[in-house]
Design a protein around this nucleic acid. Structure first.
Lengths: 214, 214
DNA sequence: AAAAATCTTGCAGTCTCTGCACAGTTGCAG
DNA sequence: CTGCAACTGTGCAGAGACTGCAAGATTTTT
């Protein structure tokens, strides 16, 4: 099921399994009973580990719902590199999209799981908060990378932070729409549309724009 | 000090005072010792009320830092109305800016307090999460209002959610920059610049753009 | 097979946050 | 100004999130 289940030793495999078991248990239980009626102990029991182990994997209950896979330390830097290595003829927005392109497939591949996750987040705004602060962790590095690519300064200039935040806004609203129609249209397509609208200065569209095909 | 200290009966006045006392105590203590080394009990003691009373005013420790003044229920709807009542010749982005114009003055008026708040938020990303969820509470209503003003649908169309999120991104990055120079330039000016950049499709600026005047 | 590294677990303890009941204040009508 | 109604402050008990510590189990390495 997981693409990285091979060649990693028994120990690492077990760890990944436990992580996934806890994440799925959290997702299922919270979907059924609501966030407040599920304790960390419930999730641990469902996954067959001790409550103490739960907190070895997730610093908080919320993380069990939001962090589908263990995040490697390098992932942030990997994204930054991917952004900087994007074709030179792409504008900053398109370079960001290029950077994300691989990740985007995951939404359509694990559609059910992600839809369930979004449904939960929708019912519990506190979770959306954590989502944002998750992006926040690598924010500075991404902003500096944007500054580097555009020849500006990461903290003195407005542009890099603005571009990054605006890009995040585009992704967020596109994914929201994706979840709204149950993933019937590929996520990449919706994000492409959002980025294009951003790049055009957010003109008010004619009526029924999201139904149109081109 | 507060503009609304008059004509509200002794009871309401005391309540406002307690709220402010707790908020200021939280701000001061956390600025000194850091978020983790300040308990709700500490803040209550500093403000001269019981720990139980603290939670009568704020649902969480974080809120004591972030919610400077008691939020009225109507404030959200007031903003929505202000947006819808904006001059008809303004585009959606400018209408949003118009809606915010009154609030923006508060940053420059209580500069020290806000700078202190941002410094704390900067050190504790978890707080940024709460900031977002605060905006989130009225999100749906604002998106619907944008849909109404542009003749689109709030949940079926991408545009309203995208515009709102992008606007939030502009405000966020402008305020961040404002805090970065210690509020030397008025917040309204920086946000104006961010909105203009958004409306122009986020073109990569020439060098040193934030120093330029026009 | 033994040693080293790592993982799981239980335990004790701190802190956040809530419901409840009671006491003290304030607002208001008569 | 008096008495009632509405509200506010506070203590208490308790659930639940989360952490440090140390002992035991498991995997990896030598």
């Amino acid at each position: 099921m997981s693409p990285t289940d091979q060649g990693m030793g028994l120990r690492a495999r077990k760890k990944l399994e436990t992580h996934r078991a806890l994440a799925k248990a959290a997702l299922r239980l919270v979907a059924e009973r609501g966030l407040d009626n599920v304790t960390a102990e419930d999730i641990s029991a469902e996954a067959g580990v001790s409550p103490r182990t739960f907190f070895n994997y997730f610093p908080s209950k919320e993380d069990a719902i939001l962090v589908a896979y263990p995040e490697s330390e390098q992932r942030g830097e990997q994204l930054v590199r991917r952004f900087l290595d994007a074709p030179a003829d792409l504008g900053p927005l398109d370079a960001l999209l290029w950077m994300m392109s691989e990740e985007l497939v995951l939404f359509d591949e694990n559609r059910e799981e992600w839809l369930s996750r979004f449904a939960i987040v929708d019912r519990h705004p506190a979770l959306m908060a954590r989502v944002v602060s998750g992006q926040l962790s690598g924010e500075r590095k991404m902003i500096d990378a944007i500054a580097e690519r555009t020849g500006l300064h990461g903290t003195e200039d407005l542009y890099p932070a603005l571009l990054f935040a605006a890009f995040g806004a585009a992704v967020k609203s596109a994914i929201k729409l994706w979840a709204h129609h149950g993933g019937r249209r590929p996520a990449a397509e919706l994000i492409r549309a959002a980025i294009d609208s951003l790049g055009a200065g957010l003109p008010v569209p004619a009526h029924r724009p999201t139904r149109g095909n081109s």
